[in-house]
């Protein structure tokens, strides 16, 4: 029996497709026999994928190096010639890090609480406020809506450092410098997340919303009960991106009281402690990179589903 992949046309009783040229059937058979696409040369495949493999190794090397360094005891960190893999892997660096954390001027749990609080509130606000805006921008045509969205696309290009100075001035004018709001409010308005949400919602059929409207649902109810459950991948993506950026937020320019600093800031202060803390610095690198990477692994398929709609239409 010969079947053609993704063929949905008429078939004969034995399942062989009608109307499919012989050429295609033959190509498919040979492709199946060799288990690859018909118009690919084997030599090309081997060549390309071995290059890809080498590049992937090169990409992964620094991260593996970082993890291995964190597992090396102090004498191995300064061994000559330096080695890649630790000979006697230990978790000493991590326990040393815990000791240093215990000695900080502000109880270390305070930094953790700060980061958890900021991440939680910021992400929550970002998803709600961003989705509300994304919904109307994606599904309704109203005056000033399009120009506003192109402004958001332009804002995707803003670099944190470039706007940091005037941002500080604006924040000091409204008096939120050195409060959590200084981190939270810009994070809630993050253009990237809103942009992704809007692009994803474009794919939602308008008939869904209209039928709810005919049934007498108010806009707010449509948003909560029809729209939001249907864009689950998008708001999961929003959560992940928001968590990633808030976790990495140091905000050293807008927060100056030590008790309000974030965990990453405190960890990087330890990291900057010079050569005596080389081991701990390596441990910090691993701790800091672990959270974003772990969240990405857990939600990869949802993120990719959202990114599939991220394209910019003319």
């Amino acid at each position: 029996m010969t079947t053609v992949k993704h063929y949905k046309g008429p078939v004969r009783a034995d399942g062989t497709p009608i109307n499919v040229p012989k050429k295609v059937l033959k190509l498919q058979q040979t492709a199946k026999a060799r288990n690859r696409k018909p118009n690919r040369s084997l030599a090309g495949n081997i060549f390309i994928y071995s290059i890809l493999f080498l590049v992937a190794c090169a990409m992964a090397f620094p991260l593996i190096f970082a993890i291995c360094s964190a597992l090396k005891p102090l004498d191995e960190l300064f061994r000559f010639p330096p080695t890649l893999f630790p000979r006697n892997p230990t978790l000493d660096n991590f326990s040393d890090l815990l000791v240093t954390m215990g000695q900080s001027w502000i109880p270390f749990s305070r930094y953790i609480t700060n980061t958890v609080f900021i991440t939680f509130v910021g992400t929550f606000g970002n998803v709600i406020v961003g989705s509300l805006a994304a919904y109307v921008l994606a599904k309704y045509d109203f005056p000033l809506g399009k120009p506003f969205f192109s402004l958001v696309v332009t804002a995707l290009m803003f670099n944190g450092y470039v706007t940091a100075i005037p941002n500080y001035l604006v924040m000091s004018k409204i008096g939120i410098v050195d409060t959590y709001w200084a981190i939270l409010l810009p994070a809630i308005a993050a253009p990237m997340n809103m942009f992704l949400m809007k692009q994803f919602m474009e794919g939602l059929p308008m008939s869904l919303i209209e039928s709810a409207k005919i049934d007498g649902a108010k806009e707010m109810r449509i948003f909560w009960q029809i729209v939001m459950p249907n864009v689950k991948p998008a708001w999961l993506t929003m959560i992940i991106f928001s968590v990633q950026s808030l976790w990495n937020a140091k905000a050293s320019t807008v927060i100056y009281s030590e008790a309000k600093k974030t965990l990453v800031y405190a960890l990087q202060q330890i990291q900057a402690g010079g050569i005596a803390r080389t081991g701990q610095a390596a441990a910090v690198t691993v701790v800091v990179m672990l959270v974003p990477i772990a969240t990405f692994i857990l939600s990869q398929s949802q993120i990719l589903e959202t990114m599939a709609t991220s394209g910019l239409k003319d």
Partner: peptide, 18 residues
Amino acid sequence: AFLAPYAVLFLAFYILPM
């Protein structure tokens, strides 16, 4: 009304600084 909360924050912390 839906857009307002986002628009206010966005304009205040991204466009106004620029």
